Simulated assay, not measured.
Amino acid sequence: MLLTLTGSSCSGKSTLAFSVADRLRRVAVHDFDEVGVPERADRRWRNRMTELWVRRALEYQGRGIDLLLTGQSPLGEVLAVPSATLLDGIAVCLIDVADEVRRDRLARRDPGRWEAHAVDAFLGWAAWHRGHAHDPRHRPDVIMGDSWPEMAWHRWAGWAVDDPRWRTHLLDTTDQPVARSVDEVEQWITEQRDAHRSGQIPLIRGWTEKRHDS
């Protein structure tokens, strides 16, 4: 199955994913950007790369290995890429942090790189992620507009907020020790894998065909 840690920059996604890697058996951990990021990476590029990573997850799936992927693709994007319906299971966790903490982390990580408007864009993207995680109807235009033509947005465009398939786990790392956040990620992964094995995960293969109430 595919497990993703998503969210805006500097929330701690990669740190948590690679910290938990040695605790889990038959889980491959990758960062979305390790394939390289072009200078003018846009929404269509992210769409295509999300499809690339879903195909990589399918390769791992064929070997009985789950993929834990860190990146910025939200649930709606993952569900809409062409190959998503071939995955045995999908689970998404939003790694979030308070705006002031994200702002400080950006300044420390890339001193002098980001102007105020760019930092505000990171914060706005984080706020959108929160709304999207809660409600599929929250400004879908943000990801649908000028997207890769192969994206199948219709798969979930009509879902309501109470649809059990629309489930993104939220982990807020604000003022929380890294060790505790790593423990919580490990617990989330374990719960999702257990639910998958028992057939109880909402986004199990066949999720496009009908609503699975739980």
Score class of each variant (00 low, 15 high):
2 L>R: 02
3 L>R: 11
10 C>V: 04
10 C>D: 10
12 G>D: 06
13 K>Y: 11
16 L>M: 08
18 F>P: 03
18 F>T: 04
18 F>H: 13
19 S>P: 01
22 D>F: 00
23 R>I: 04
24 L>E: 00
25 R>Q: 12
25 R>M: 06
27 V>Y: 07
28 A>E: 12
30 H>A: 07
32 F>N: 01
37 V>Q: 05
38 P>E: 02
40 R>W: 05
42 D>M: 12
46 R>G: 02
50 T>W: 04
54 V>I: 12
55 R>P: 05
55 R>Q: 15
56 R>T: 11
59 E>K: 07
60 Y>M: 13
61 Q>E: 15
63 R>S: 00
65 I>E: 14
68 L>W: 02
69 L>G: 00
70 T>E: 13
70 T>I: 05
71 G>I: 03
74 P>M: 08
74 P>Q: 09
75 L>K: 13
77 E>G: 14
78 V>T: 15
79 L>F: 05
81 V>E: 12
81 V>G: 08
81 V>T: 11
82 P>N: 11
82 P>K: 07
84 A>C: 10
85 T>W: 06
85 T>M: 06
85 T>I: 11
86 L>Q: 14
87 L>S: 15
87 L>Y: 15
87 L>D: 15
88 D>Q: 15
88 D>Y: 10
89 G>M: 13
92 V>R: 08
94 L>M: 07
94 L>D: 03
95 I>L: 03
95 I>R: 00
97 V>E: 13
98 A>W: 11
98 A>G: 13
98 A>L: 10
99 D>P: 09
101 V>A: 05
101 V>P: 01
105 R>A: 06
106 L>G: 11
107 A>F: 00
108 R>V: 12
109 R>S: 05
111 P>G: 05
111 P>H: 06
111 P>F: 01
112 G>T: 03
114 W>I: 12
115 E>D: 14
115 E>T: 13
117 H>S: 14
118 A>R: 12
119 V>W: 08
120 D>H: 00
120 D>S: 07
121 A>Y: 13
123 L>T: 12
126 A>I: 01
127 A>H: 06
129 H>Q: 08
129 H>E: 07
129 H>N: 07
132 H>M: 11
133 A>I: 05
133 A>C: 03
134 H>W: 01
135 D>Q: 07
136 P>D: 02
140 P>E: 08
140 P>W: 09
142 V>N: 13
145 G>Y: 05
145 G>M: 09
147 S>W: 00
150 E>P: 14
150 E>C: 14
152 A>G: 04
154 H>F: 09
155 R>H: 08
156 W>M: 04
159 W>P: 10
160 A>Q: 08
162 D>M: 12
162 D>P: 13
164 P>D: 15
166 W>E: 04
171 L>I: 04
173 T>E: 04
173 T>D: 03
173 T>K: 04
175 D>A: 14
175 D>R: 14
177 P>I: 07
178 V>R: 11
180 R>Q: 09
181 S>R: 07
181 S>Y: 07
182 V>D: 05
183 D>Y: 02
183 D>G: 02
185 V>E: 03
185 V>R: 04
185 V>N: 04
188 W>C: 03
190 T>H: 09
191 E>V: 15
193 R>C: 08
193 R>S: 08
194 D>Y: 01
195 A>L: 14
197 R>D: 06
198 S>K: 12
202 P>W: 10
203 L>N: 07
203 L>I: 07
204 I>E: 14
204 I>H: 15
207 W>N: 12
207 W>D: 10
209 E>M: 01
210 K>G: 03
212 H>P: 00
